[in-house]
Simulated scan of single mutants.
Amino acid sequence: MSLNPYLTFDGNCEEAFKTYEKVLGGKILAMMPHEGTPAAEHVPAEWHKKILHARLQIGDDVLMASDAPPGRGEKMQGFSVTLVLKDPKEAERIYDAFAEGGTVTMQLQETFWAHKFGMLTDRFGTPWMINCEKPMAA
C-alpha cells in the first residue's frame, strides 16, 4: 500500500508542479491536460490546456494533482504536505523557496523535537510543514 497526497489547484497546477520538481529535485512523470481526453468536453474551451492529472516522483514518494474545473475548486486547508529532511541546510533551502511569495505560518526554527521546523503556504496555495527532526531518544 502507498499513501499519496492529491492536490487540486485553481488553474496553476502545471506551474506549481514545475516549481516543486525543481525545488524538491523530483521528476514529473505525468502532466496530462484536459485537451485530447474525454474530459475536455466537460470543461470550457479555455480550460482545455489546464491539467487533468499530474504525477511527481520525489524519491520513493509521489505527489499528484490536477486543476479543479471552474467553480469546483476549494482552498486547500485542514492538512499540510510534510517534508521530513535530514539536512538542516536543505530544510532551509526548501523552506526559503516555498516562502517566496507565500504566507509563513511559523518561521523555520529549532524546536524541542527538530533542528529545523517551519510551516507555510506557498504562492500556489499548498500548505507545507518542513521538518528536520532531531534523533529521538530510545
Rank of each mutant, 00 (worst) to 15 (best):
Y20S: 00
S80Y: 10
A99L: 05
A39H: 06
F79N: 14
G26I: 12
K27F: 14
D96Y: 03
G26L: 10
T8F: 09
D61H: 10
F124N: 01
P38T: 09
Q107P: 12
V62S: 03
W113H: 14
T111Y: 13
T37I: 06
L3E: 07
I58T: 11
K86A: 15
Y95Q: 11
L85D: 03
E15R: 10
T82G: 09
G118V: 04
M119Q: 14
T37W: 02
L3S: 10
W47S: 06
G101M: 04
T37Q: 06
E15A: 13
K134G: 08
L24A: 04
V23Y: 07
A91T: 07
G59S: 08
M129I: 11
D96H: 07
G125M: 08
M136Q: 15
Y6F: 15
V62P: 01
A45K: 15
A91C: 12
E41I: 04
G125E: 08
A40I: 03
S80H: 11
I58Y: 08
D87R: 07
S80L: 09
T82D: 07
H42T: 12
M1T: 10
L24V: 03
E41N: 09
K116G: 00
Q77A: 13
G118Y: 03
Q57P: 04
G26Q: 09
G26T: 12
Q57L: 13
P135K: 15
E35T: 09
L56P: 00
A39N: 08
C13I: 02
K22S: 15
E41V: 05
G102K: 15
G102M: 14
A40K: 08
H34S: 00
S66K: 05
A137P: 06
K75W: 01
G73L: 04
E92V: 10
W113T: 13
M32E: 13
M64L: 14
Q109H: 11
Q109L: 10
Q77F: 09
K50N: 10
V84R: 11
Y6L: 06
I51D: 02
T8H: 09
A16P: 02
V104S: 05
A39W: 02
K86C: 06
G78H: 03
L24Y: 02
W113Q: 11
A45Q: 14
A30R: 06
E46K: 14
N4G: 01
A138M: 15
R55P: 00
S80P: 06
K50S: 06
R93G: 09
K116T: 02
Y95S: 11
K89E: 14
I51P: 01
K50G: 03
L56E: 00
C132L: 11
H42Q: 14
E74P: 05
K134V: 07
L52D: 01
F98I: 06
M119R: 14
C132E: 05
N12H: 07
V23G: 09
G78R: 01
A114N: 04
S2Y: 10
A137S: 11
F98P: 00
V84G: 07
T82C: 13
Y95E: 11
H34R: 00
K22R: 14
H34E: 03
M64R: 04
G59N: 09
M106W: 08
M76Q: 07
V104H: 07
A65V: 01
E14Y: 00
L52A: 02
A138S: 15
F117P: 00
K86Y: 08
P5L: 04
A65F: 00
L108N: 01
V43L: 06
K18H: 11
P5T: 06
